[in-house]
Design a protein around this nucleic acid. Structure first.
Lengths: 204, 204, 204, 204
DNA sequence: TATGAATGAGCATTCATTCAT
DNA sequence: CATGAATGAATGCTCATTCAT
């Protein structure tokens, strides 16, 4: 096993990465199943199969671990969304694509999005710097950029505020999907409605 | 110590109501200023000028007190909204009226809406019954009814899902106003955009 | 039991004082027997027969409890010393009286003085204000005053630094008594030596 | 990995010594700057530029490392003191020489003496054997021997207890210098006073 | 009806030490 | 000889709730 050249990734380092992975995975399960406040670092460590000191080897505190989980979820959804609309040019197709990507993700990883939306601002220790932007706010910005592109292409009116429109769309998606899920509304009906609302909102 | 010359009940009852009012007022201040998790029943009682035990005379637990606060905020905003659109028949006027009512409330009572939107589901003790509907969900339903009325009047297309449309609108309002507040976007710009988006979303 | 006049000390208050007394007593035993670092607030509470939350009802933290213990010991010794030299005018009698008072206290309360001498500066949380003066430093000051009085009375030379002389005397007492105790040197021999050294140091 | 052309032992031995030296140096800095309880073996190892495990290659535990530091400081001061009074025969000269040697050391190595005086007894794991003699106790003994020599030479009365007198002198020096430092008293004033007190204490 | 002293399960975090590599 | 990831017992402290008065 010992190669003759210098190990690019020394053995201990690999082990450490593996630990971190296991901890994050366990954290994800628990944050989803029990929520932030009912998940203890000890539980995460136990489920990850490591000692609870090890938790603090990888994260300075519980909050940092949660933020890492949120970031992971965000990146996964973002990647799935981007992949879904690759090569799709029309706004309706893009809207539908992203909504479906999000719902697919929600089906594949139940509860993760909900947990990841936990308001991180509420976890702030005290009067320190303003909390980082929400996942939703970031997504809203991405939507804003997309809408601007369509304004440039002439498919969306120039006199609407693209940034706010982007935020409006994610707000719609969040609220509608939450309620639809609670009320057992069919995915198709929800998707169709959302696509229509979003499209009309920006295109009139 | 209680004088014998007074009727016990009405007097005590009034006193009790007064206690409850003071407690709720203190709770409101603290939930807004520090958030649910950083507010202790003891703090509420102290700020209300009553003993710690008195808190539990009026609320079975901290969560119930928070829910009472949420309900109070909801009712205040609802009342203000209804008053604002009394006699307003057109959808645009209604949308604008309610949005402005909400913003006025937000200005008059800074932070209250934000605090009241704390996801009550996160406060659930454990795997008990599903959490009560969010404020937003309730407001979305109200919007849904209003849209149905417009569908009946012919001012909104019949083939849109009024309930989901209602939810979409409140989702938009929530997200846009949150972001606008964080970014210091002017109220007019925000209101105009929201009215436009909401109107277009349901009317095309 | 309920008196007709207002209770000067309401019932709860009396109970609280009793709690504090029990906690301090338990703390004293434990700080003496195990030292500051090996005594946990929980242990103190258990030995005091109260819940461990009660500990924090009376002291903001462990350090504050320790300081209260130190203060108590200091006051006890000071009181005993003062009582011992009441009406004693000559310096030698005063020196001997105080030394004997201290030793008597040490016999009656073994280990307490030792524990109370734990350097409080070492317990300082971080870079806050300079630590309070040591017990020894305070006693040294008292000695300094006494020596000044003797200078005024002409029984001690005016050209010695009374304050430093006071500190020197307590330094002597501390070190000699510590070593003597460890080596099993008889109390008489130790006292006689100390009196002689102290007297000669200031009177030559 | 160890080259075959070098003698293993001397080379490794040198490397080991170097490690130990670096660790002790780092330990000294930290014990002085932060105190025993706020210094972790990990910190020492990091500052020494070695792995955490290496620490335990050189010291069985943290306490042993601290004791090594104390011993080092003691030996340094002792050496400086002895050098200072080489060839000085009179008691006053000796007293003054040693006090000045100690103060010079304190100036050159601020905080070291203070840290080294940490009561090692407090570090005892539990009810094991009596703690090793304090630095001060050892110095007191040295003083005792010196005084005996003066008794033999007739410059100090025979009826004083030389051992206790030695302890008394170091006790004085410790307490006075500590207080003087805290109060910003000039070194000269402090030295002169100490010399006078010490000399009078044993010579009357 | 009101009080506030008391409670103790629960929590996030630390750190001296070990051991596989 | 050197490393540093891993460990888990231990710690100081909080806070929602109860209950004797």
């Amino acid at each position: 096993m010992e190669s003759m050249t210098e190990q690019a990734t020394p053995r201990g380092s690999q082990r450490k990465k593996e630990s971190r992975r296991k901890i994050l995975e366990a954290a994800r399960h628990l944050f989803v199943a029990r929520g932030y406040h009912h998940t203890r670092p000890q539980d995460i460590a136990r489920d990850a199969g490591v000692g609870h000191g090890t938790f603090y080897l990888h994260f300075p505190d519980k909050k940092a671990c949660f933020l890492a989980f949120v970031e992971m979820a965000r990146d996964e959804v973002t990647a799935a969304s981007i992949k879904r609309i690759e090569g799709v040019a029309d706004l309706e197709g893009q809207i539908r694509g992203i909504i479906e990507a999000i719902f697919d993700y929600g089906v594949a990883h139940p509860g993760v999005l909900n947990a990841a939306l936990t308001d991180v601002g509420l976890l702030a220790s005290s009067e320190d710097e303003p909390p980082p932007p929400t996942i939703l706010e970031q997504w809203g910005d991405v939507w804003g950029e997309r809408i601007k592109a369509h304004q440039a292409a002439g498919t969306v009116a120039n006199d609407i505020d693209a940034n706010l429109a982007g935020q409006a769309i994610v707000g719609m998606i969040r609220q509608v999907s939450m309620v639809a899920q609670r009320r057992g509304i069919s995915r198709n009906r929800m998707t169709d409605s959302l696509v229509r609302f979003a499209l009309q909102a920006v295109q009139g």
